[in-house]
Structures are given as structure tokens and as C-alpha cells.
Design a protein around this nucleic acid. Sequence first.
DNA 1: GAGCCAGTTGAGATCGAGTCTCGACAACTG
DNA 2: CAGTTGTCGAGACTCGATCTCAACTGGCTC
Lengths: 146, 146
Amino acid sequence: MTDANPIVSALDLAGYRLTEPRRAVADLIAEQTGHFTASELERVVRDRRLGISRATLFRALELLTELGVVERLDLPTGEHAYVPCARAHHHHVVCSRCGRTAEAEDCGVSDAVGEIARRTGFRIDSHRLELFGLCRHCQARTTSDA
Amino acid sequence: MTDANPIVSALDLAGYRLTEPRRAVADLIAEQTGHFTASELERVVRDRRLGISRATLFRALELLTELGVVERLDLPTGEHAYVPCARAHHHHVVCSRCGRTAEAEDCGVSDAVGEIARRTGFRIDSHRLELFGLCRHCQARTTSDA
DNA sequence: GAGCCAGTTGAGATCGAGTCTCGACAACTG
DNA sequence: CAGTTGTCGAGACTCGATCTCAACTGGCTC
């Protein structure tokens, strides 16, 4: 089987060894539709008896974060979560009901950042914008539910 | 002594007891110029023999966060930090060298957020923008240093 | 000023995410 | 196919944060 999983290819391209555990983690991540926490993955690993240790899981996540194929974000609760994503700079919109995420491009954010830099006198090197709300699907459900 | 410390007044107004430990924590926070982590505060408490337990410190921080007089933010390193701040919605600019923070008002961010909502179809309820860079002071020092 | 009582506190156990160590193992190279 | 070396697994460890529960105290009442 040629690897259909782009995460695996990313590892390969970056010159990392394609080990069994890494493939497994890559597959797990690839099947996530929204954000996920390390402990969620951990549970899946345990349930499916994939035999991947916690250390390896964290190492894989760290590696993939470095490669830019997943991104770490902070939920309003203070939890750390991960989202699979593309390399370019963008922002994440997280559904607080179902956990679905969407990526949003700049949309004028960098203009705002420039304006903030001007007003505060700071030289802004990086920024992080995280958005929380309801996805289309959950909005519809809320209207009919409540 | 009438309490000059606005954090103490905020506690009072919200109907919480003005206990010795809370006053002490409020004072500590009031003297911070930038962001600070819970463990930094913890060290200060220990150094000054204020006799405040960790649990109390965390409880006070939680309470003050709830009241909106401090805000919790996530540093790029993944650490949790706090900044004293006003109640209105705004964003924090953090100097990655010295830790100074500035508050930035909207500056067009909410327009961008609206645009993102439109494009993704999400109903955005809240967002968090954190900016990292160098403050004026550290920019000057960098230029002369390097 | 004394007494009462719910809200708070302190000490320390506990939790839980994440990291580290180190011997064993397996992926790529020639 | 053997060697090199990157990676893995198990489990101890770290450390931020939370919880428990008995003791205490701030603020109200009289």
C-alpha cells in the first residue's frame, strides 16, 4: 500500500523514520474531524490495543506539531488540544458543542494586528487567534431543540 | 486605611469576604507590571513568608479571573500566565523578552471576526487574540545590543 | 464587645498531563 | 546481511493544579 496518509508523507519528506507507531498515530490523527486532546488519543490507543506508549504518543504529537501538520491550541477551559491542519498561517474556529473545527484565513486579521502594533509600539512577531462558537450543524440543532 | 487597591474593591463589590490572604494576593497582583505565572506568585509568597498556601493562591486567582480583574492567557511555550486587566473586551500584547504587557482595543479585530464567521458559517461566540513580540524598550535594547 | 455561622483557609494527599531515562529494538544504509 | 543510530516501551518522575476536611475568621446581630 502506498501511503495515502499525507501525515505519513510529511514525516518521510522531513527525513524521519516511518515506524509502526508513527504510522498508527498519523492514522489516528487523520481520522479526527475536529480537535482532540492528547488524553483522548491515549484512550483510543488503549481501547484499540495499539500498544503505543504514552511517551511515544507525546513524542509523535510534538514531532507533528513541529512539522506543522497538527497545531496545538488552547481551549477556553485551559485544556490543550490539537487540530490537524495545513502549514500556512491561519486561525482555528472551534465548535464548542461538537468540537468540529474550521480553518480561517487572514480575513483582515493582519490589518488589525498592524494597527495594534502601531498603537502599542510593540513589534509584533507572532499572534494567535482562536475563535469559539457554534458550527452550522449545531446552530441548526439548537434552533430545533430549544 | 481605605483600600487603594482596586482589586480589593472588586472583591468587596462582588460580595466576597475581604480576608487577609485575599488582600495579600491582590496586592501582589497589583504590583505586577506584566504577566505572571501562578508559580511565580507562589515563589514570592514563599520568599516573603506571607503564609498563604498554594490552594488559597489558586483559589484567589480563579476568583479574580471570574471577576475579570485578571485574565488568563497562554504563552507560546504552553505555560499559563495571568495579567491584571480591565473588564472590557480587549487583547493582550506580550513582550517575549521582558514580559511587559499592553492591552489593545479592538482595532478592527471584530470586523475580521465577522468576516471569518461569514466565511466559515460558524456563529462565533467568543474569541481570543494573543500577540507576542517586543515592546518598545526591548526593541531599543536589541538594536544597540546586537 | 461577645457570639454566631457560613465562607475561607492551610496542610497535605491526590490527580493528571507531560517528560525523562535507559535498555531493547527495528528502520534505513552500504 | 550486518552495522549504525534513531526510535520505542515501561515506568519512574516532575510539577502545576485540585480536592478534602478540620480549624479558623470576617462580618453580621444583638
